[in-house]
Design a binder for these strands. Structure first.
Lengths: 160, 160
DNA sequence: TATTGTTATACTCTATAACTATA
DNA sequence: TATAGTTATAGAGTATAACAATA
């Protein structure tokens, strides 16, 4: 394994950013993950739904989904089976290439994603509430400029 | 599922913080996770090692480990089996309560954790490098004060 | 009796291999 | 022939149940 060459002037930021991200990861996913568990969905099924939500035209082929999630075709095929059964997605033959299937989230699927996003935002809000006004201000400055400059995908329900 | 009551003045921070954390989670765990995979360790085994590293006296009972990781006793017992085989941890009878076993990381186990931490820091460094000097400055201000004020566990190899 | 840990067993999720249909 | 998807099968990793040892 290779030694990293962390520039000394970045070392403290890197260390503290890592510490904070680890903390937030542990703290702020519970609500969503518990909900997914209660619904009897697997993590792969959650990721599949999320992939569809950000896909061009809100639909993908099974192949594309498998590649995006790092899953084999059989694995993604089974995962989507479950989503189809729950009517969270539809799976239809691609008229342009009848070997291929197009998978798209249903209204119910999109609504579920929104609910899960709301749960995650609620956990994040609880963390943000623990910050002092000064910490909030500083963090908002830093985070907002970084996220907007890079056009990182927003963490928010689609509309409503 | 319940609607979250995100205070409007926090909404933007919450959304952008979530977006950034998701981005960093995806981006900055690859090196470490690939290494764990190459080593043939499961995620539970990684978490078990990490739990030991931050444990009081650097050792825990199997029961404590299972509780900490949300795993059943059989599951954590099996996970530790593998770590013992690889000589990353030792498992010894607790002389005070002979029902119980004390699990402790070996020097090799601690060294492995340090290497994995270095990989994660390297990925974080790569992200930090993409920031402008101004963004770095702002982020360092915010993150450092938050992490130190809460004494969040540092993300750094034990020594060296 | 209660608790810690292990062994036996079943279930879920995954991948590889074999197969079907289409290109 | 090559590719998209499904079905068959085997291997991890998990939990529950049954068990052994100790408290």
């Amino acid at each position: 394994m290779q030694q990293a060459a962390v520039k000394p002037e970045n070392a403290e930021l890197v260390r503290n950013l890592g510490s904070l991200v680890v903390h937030i990861m542990k703290t702020c996913s519970r609500g969503m993950l518990e909900a997914v568990d209660r619904l009897g969905l697997s993590l792969s099924q959650l990721k599949a739904l999320q992939a569809l939500a950000t896909a061009d035209g809100l639909e993908m082929s099974l192949k594309e989904m498998g590649d995006a999630l790092g899953l084999s075709l059989p694995a993604i095929s089974r995962a989507v089976d479950g989503l189809v059964q729950r009517e969270l997605v539809t799976r239809t033959e691609d008229p342009n290439d009848r070997r291929s299937k197009r998978v798209a989230a249903t209204a119910a699927g999109r609504a579920l994603l929104d609910e899960l996003t709301v749960l995650r935002l609620a956990d994040l809000e609880a963390f943000v509430e623990t910050l002092s006004p000064r910490e909030r201000r500083q963090l908002e400055q830093a985070v907002t400029s970084i996220v907007t400059a890079r056009a990182l995908p927003p963490l928010s329900p689609r509309k409503e």
